[in-house]
Amino acid sequence: MNYMGTFWNDLLFAVIVMSIGVVIARILRIVIGRLVTGASTKLKVDPTKYNFLKNAVEFIIYVIALIVIFNSIPKLRAYGTALFAGAGVLAAIVGFASQSAFSNIVSGVFIVIFRPFSVGDRVQVGQLYTGDVEDITLRHTVIKDFENRRIVIPNAVINNETIINSSLSHEKICTFLEIGVSFDADVDKAMSIMQEEALNHPFCQDNRTFEETAEGKPKVVVRMLGLTETAVRLRASIWATNPSDAFEMRCDLFKSIKARFDAEGISLAFPQRVVYLRESTTDKKS
């Protein structure tokens, strides 16, 4: 009688634990399903591709429930130890193999939630990759560089890199145009030429505030940054509507400023070395 009572108690305990596991698994399945569906809608991908996430979570909950049951019932404890020891090795192998993929998926969800960049933004990832974001999936991000090549970067890698986003709030950008002139050049004239050429370029934008305009501050500011061993460094700060216009404007201005410098007799800096030749004593004796 006592044996039958223990059996029914153990059975009732197992049923309760499994029932709780089923309820928790269903709740988590619904929550994860909604999260994946929302992320997939923003990424414009098929959410059914990521149903394995819901299935994996549900499977883990059932495994935990079985561990609790086998560990709590003395007669099943010995069988459970051998069973879950073998299952633990298999789970470790599968977990290690899927760790990278799962990390990329979680990173993709974080990108959608926190939005460090979006499709169409111009970004620089670390020090190596620069281009326009063409596509974002739950596993990787596709960036089209300026040579029209596609760079596929795992999301986990992007989350660990510093991202420079030129389009996060607005695309207007201040580009620096630096030129070194020789020490004997007319610095004021060189600065004036740089300012004039920048103002004449169609991509040059006026980013001054109303107060700065009223105070008479220039639309393009040119400053002398300093002196090096061979050059007087000049820098013009020029605003453009977007990074593409800024790049094209820089290329055009280098050409036009070089032409103006040549016409005005302003020489660019170049490395110079003074070499002293010592007369040998042999030559003197001869």
Rank of each mutant, 00 (worst) to 15 (best):
M1Y: 04
M1K: 05
N2C: 07
Y3H: 07
L12C: 05
V15S: 08
M18T: 08
G21R: 02
I27D: 03
R29H: 14
G33W: 06
R34P: 01
V36P: 00
S40Y: 03
S40A: 13
S40F: 05
P47H: 04
Y50E: 09
F52M: 15
N55S: 15
N55D: 15
F59T: 12
F59K: 05
Y62P: 00
V63E: 09
I69D: 15
I73V: 15
P74E: 15
L76G: 01
L76M: 04
R77F: 13
R77M: 08
G80N: 01
G80F: 13
T81N: 12
T81K: 13
G86A: 12
L90Q: 09
A91S: 06
A97K: 04
F102R: 12
S107Y: 07
F110P: 02
F110M: 14
I113D: 01
F117N: 03
F117A: 00
V119W: 09
V133K: 05
D135S: 02
V142K: 06
D145V: 05
D145T: 05
N148W: 04
I151P: 04
P154L: 10
N155C: 05
N155T: 06
N159P: 04
I163Q: 09
I164K: 09
I164G: 05
I164L: 11
N165A: 11
L168P: 10
S169M: 13
S169W: 11
E171N: 06
K172E: 06
C174A: 13
T175G: 07
F176D: 12
A185I: 07
D188H: 10
K189R: 11
S192P: 05
M194W: 08
E196S: 10
N200C: 11
N200H: 13
P202V: 14
V220E: 08
L225K: 12
G226H: 03
T228Q: 10
A231D: 10
A231Q: 12
R233V: 14
W239K: 00
T241D: 13
M249D: 13
M249C: 00
K255R: 08
S256C: 01
I257A: 03
K258W: 08
R260S: 09
G265W: 11
I266C: 04
S267W: 01
L268P: 01
Q272S: 11
R278P: 00
E279L: 04
T281G: 02
T281I: 01
S286M: 09
